[in-house]
Amino acid sequence: MGFEMFAVFPGCTLEKYSSELKEPLIKILKYLGIEWIDLGGRCCGMPLLLSGDSESFREVIRSNTDYLRNVVVITSCAGCFRVFREYYSGFMVKHLSQFILDLGFSSFPHKVDLRAVYHDPCELIRCRVAEEPRELLRRIPGLSLSEFKLNRESSTCCGGGGLVKAIFPSLAVEVAYEKILRELPQDVDAIVSSCPFCYLNFKDAASIYSLNIKVYDIIHILGMALGVL
């Protein structure tokens, strides 16, 4: 393998929720000691794709492609990941969980005492990314990992996708609430996902319905396990 240049693509949602999502991501990458180009501030175009504005979507792809040639793109947004996989070409894309696993991280220095259940984001599971986030979570000391009864390819949606949350916000939250109510395994303190939309939607459901459950993106768990959060 030749020279690899890493490019971090936080995506629009991590930018919008910067202190909650982007900053932890940057801290993790700094801890890992890699060098990267920051592609912050850019949008992968998914909102346009989902809006049906294919012409503008293609323009965004063209404009982004100039920046993405011959790099390894790292993103923790399941939406960006899927769009890069399915609609772009000319570079490699890795979800943060894949990237860290590929670095060969076999143990994490800090304990994270948590009984967590992993929620498969639709955008990752349709790209067959299921095991990498689980494998990382399993390597974290103190963390016990549970599964929803319907998991991996059979997993159910949090309601936060497809722009439904933008149009019918209460409906999206209600889907998350219904999933928690109906599917959450017993003796679990937290839901962990690896997609900002799932994270935000579950978090909204937990806060609106005052549920006794913590909600994390995998970024937060990794940050804690590395001692940067």
């Binding site: 629009c12 949602t13 930018e15 919008k16 910067s18 912050g40 501030g41 850019r42 949008c43 175009g45 909102p47 346009l48 809006s51 049906g52 504005d53 294919s54 503008s56 965004v60 722009l163 933008a166 149009i167």
Partner: peptide, 30 residues
């Protein structure tokens, strides 16, 4: 989209991405 029957919140998102590079609008400009 091509026959312009897009719900209002989606129209806003399209406009925001085109104008500001983010569906959320001004908060993170290109």
């Amino acid at each position: 989209h091509s026959i312009k029957l897009i719900p209002e919140p989606i129209r806003q998102i399209i406009e925001n991405v085109k104008k500001y590079g983010s569906p959320y609008g001004l908060t993170n400009r290109f």
